[in-house]
Every structure is written in C-alpha cells, then in structure tokens.
Design a protein around this nucleic acid. Structure first.
Lengths: 230, 230
DNA sequence: CGCCCTATGATTGGATCCAATTATGGTGCC
DNA sequence: GGCACCATAATTGGATCCAATCATAGGGCG
C-alpha cells in the first residue's frame, strides 16, 4: 500500500523532529538549526526546511525571518485558551463515543487507566522505572478513535501536539494529588460511558480536561527548568 | 512592526495560492505544478515547495510522492464530520461572545446580515453584480473575534480553509430557500446574542452550522461542475 | 572605561543543478 | 484495430551554490 499523502521523507522528518520536541530532547525555547538537523539525519537542508514549514503551520515551532526556528514557549493564557477548546472537543468526542464504544474497548480503557495509576504509584515508590510513552495520551486517544470522526481526532491531535508532552507528563508525575485526581476522574468517566449516559460523559470529560489545562497552565506560570535559555 | 512569525515571502506565497484555490480560480481537483506557480510569481521553485508544504499541513491540498500536489476534493462525509466539529466550536464561540459583544458590534452584525441578504436579492433579480468577498464569512468571523480566544478563532479558520469558499457561496447563491434560511437564522441568533441568552445563542449557532454543513455536503454529493477533471 | 562602529563568521533564503520517478506518445506485434 | 512495450519528455525531490541578513567580537573614539 503506497503512501496516501505527503512525501515519505519530509513527513517522516517532521515526525522525527516533532518527537524530539515532544519528548523534551529538544527543550522548549531551543533554536532549531537547519544545518544541524540536516547533519543529524544525514540529509541536506532542503527537506529540513520543508519539514520545519510543516511544524510551523502546526504551531509547535516559531519561525522568524532570517533568524531561524525556535521551539515555541507557550504562555499560560495560550494554554488556557487551547484547553477550553480541547475541553469542548473532547466533550463532543465522549458524547459521540457513548454510542460506539463496545464492552471490549471499555475494558481496555479501564485497564489502561489502572495500569497508568499503578505504574505511577510504583514509580513514586521507586520500585519501577517510568516509561517514555505516555499512557494518559493513550487513554484519551482511544476515545478519539471511538468517536469515529477523523476531523475531530485530527484537531484534538493538533491541540495536543502544540504542547510538548514531557511537560504534561511532569505535571502528573510531580503531584500525587493530581495523579489521584486524574485516575478518579477517568474512572467516573468510564462509568458514564459504560452506562451510556452521554450527557454525563460529556460533562465529566469537559470538567476533566479543563482541570488538567489549569494544572498545565499553572506549571507554565512558574516554569523554571526544562526551558532552554540561550 | 516586524513580522511576528514566518517568513514573509513563503507565508505570503502560501496565502496567495490559498486565495486562488478559495476563489475557485484554481478548481478543486486541479494539479499544482511547482514550475508553473514559480513562473507565475516570478520566483524559483524552492519557496513554492515550502508554501505547498504549509498548504498540505492545512489539509487544503494533497501531496502524492513524486506526483505533485492537487487541490483536495472533499467527499461528503468529510464535510459532515468537519461541520459537526465546526458546529461545536461555533457554538462555544457564540456562548463566549455573549458576554463580550457590545451594542456597536451587534449593530454591525445586523448590518452585515441585512446587507448580505439585500445584495443576494439584488443579485438574484439581476439588478446588482455579486461581490467576491463573502459577507457570510465576515458575519461569522466577527463572532470568532468577539469570542476572544485566539486558539478557537484559529481552529475555526482552519476548518473553513479546508473547503474552497466559492463552493459554499454557490450553495447560498443557487437557492433562494437557503438564502432566506440563512438570513432568518442569523437574525434569530442576533436576538439571542443581544438578549444575553448564552444557552440559546449556542444552540441556535450549533443548529445553524449543522444545517449549512448539510447543504454543503449535499452539494458535494452531486457536484458536477467546478471540479477539475484532467 | 564605556559605547559605538565595523569586520568577520554563522545562518538563513532563494536559485540552480542533477538524479530519480512518472507521464506520454509512438511503434511494433498479435 | 487494440494492446503491450519502449523511448522520450515532464515533473518532482534532494543536493549544492551564492547572496543577503543577522550575531559576535574586536578595535577605535569620546
């Protein structure tokens, strides 16, 4: 099956760079030098430039004429705005998912949530090492898929891609209160989904996302580390 | 005031190409040849390629490896999906706008809506020539602005930019029933906005957008002209 | 001693080049 | 006459080149 869209190399490249930013390997605020990236991937600057344009359109990086690209540093009000939109969209996703989720998927969601919680406990206790892949993303992504609306999934992905994931993970990692809250809210949501209560699921999801956004915005308000300062 | 983001030339270029597609000058389905565009704007292919990447990320065009870019031809279910998301977001925009709209802006909205309606009547009667700038966009854009959430505005702009505007205009132009409906629904919405009834405004907006989406999807279902067939 | 001004190096941005892939048109064979 | 195959033209994609712009460091002047 051939690629349905986009040039493989450039799209792959954009994905790789995005992933480096998402993981925190390239911190927010850091400059992205074309020559450096090109050397790193063993290619010329031309495809790098095109990939950067894609990331620019996605809003993850900022490009200033003749001065290059830097990883955007979100300001708190941007986070709040984005999460108000995300809350609205995830609320819609949850509502749509109610009629489409089968028992198997609900069981999977339960399992993901439980595993995430237990892992976080183990990590906090020092009896386990943390994973890089974020389970929290997985939980929400499953619901996007279940909503069966590609545009909706795409736009939610876009919002999530605007904020490096390692930061969101930090918020959960650093506070046991937030971990507990996250777990409990997921559980409540799952109950509503399983019960087929669309209104309640939508409302729980909205509140859940708004709270998470508030935590994230708060983090950015007093961010100190993990921000590149040249 | 310097450019805050993006390279002036490439961004301008992307905007110009987008506008050609939006206006229908480049019809949906038509191929976008790099050399042709470069010659047309009197530049080399390099910035054209970067601009095309931006449009690709925006979803307006499709790029197949080694075969170039074509203007995407939306299929009806994509339109329905997009408009369900748009309805949700515009509903949020209307709700937020309620607390922020001042009387002046409401008066402007009334005036825009009335002007659009009267112009459409005049055009239908043959006593006036139609404008290219779409008043309907202006009406909705005003509400986006009033919602005072840049992310929300941006995402709504993104959805609207995914479907060439001349098509949406055609839908309104070709049917007096749709024109009447559009005018009346805008008026009702304005009443709710003026009355400060957030719930009602949100609900009216949702229904209004969903109906418009249905019309548009229906058009694409039996599209015949204005689609490029090589 | 500090500030400005200039020279140099680093980096981006547009143009050009060439290889690789795809579309096209023509010829021959069945 | 139609279909397959091959040669050639058109087009994309990555690499390279060079000019323009920006950052930086060193020297001159007040």
């Amino acid at each position: 099956m051939p690629e349905t869209d986009g040039n493989a190399l450039v799209d792959d490249l954009a994905a790789r760079i995005r992933s480096k930013i998402m993981s925190g390997e390239i911190p927010i605020g850091a400059p992205l030098r074309q020559a450096e990236l090109a050397a790193q991937f063993g290619i010329s600057r031309t495809p790098v430039r095109e990939a950067l344009r894609q990331l620019q359109t996605g809003g993850l990086i900022e490009v200033v004429p003749n001065r290059g690209a830097v990883v955007r540093v979100p300001v708190p009000w941007e986070v709040r705005e984005a999460y108000e939109v995300r809350a609205e969209l995830e609320s819609l996703a949850a509502r749509r998912a109610v009629d489409r989720l089968d028992d198997t998927t609900i069981a999977e969601l339960r399992s993901i949530n439980k595993a995430m919680y237990e892992r976080s406990l183990a990590v906090a206790a020092g009896t386990a090492t943390e994973r890089d892949g974020n389970d929290n993303d997985q939980f929400h992504s499953r619901i996007y898929e279940a909503s069966a609306n590609t545009r909706l999934s795409r736009m939610l992905g876009e919002i999530n891609d605007a904020f490096p994931r390692n930061v969101s993970a930090l918020v959960l990692k650093d506070s046991s209160r937030h971990r507990e809250e996250n777990f409990r809210e997921h559980e409540e949501l799952l109950e509503a989904l399983a019960a087929g209560d669309a209104d309640r699921a939508a409302e729980l999801m909205r509140a859940h996302v708004l709270r998470a956004g508030e935590h994230l915005a708060h983090w950015y308000e007093r961010r100190s580390s993990t921000v590149f300062t040249g």
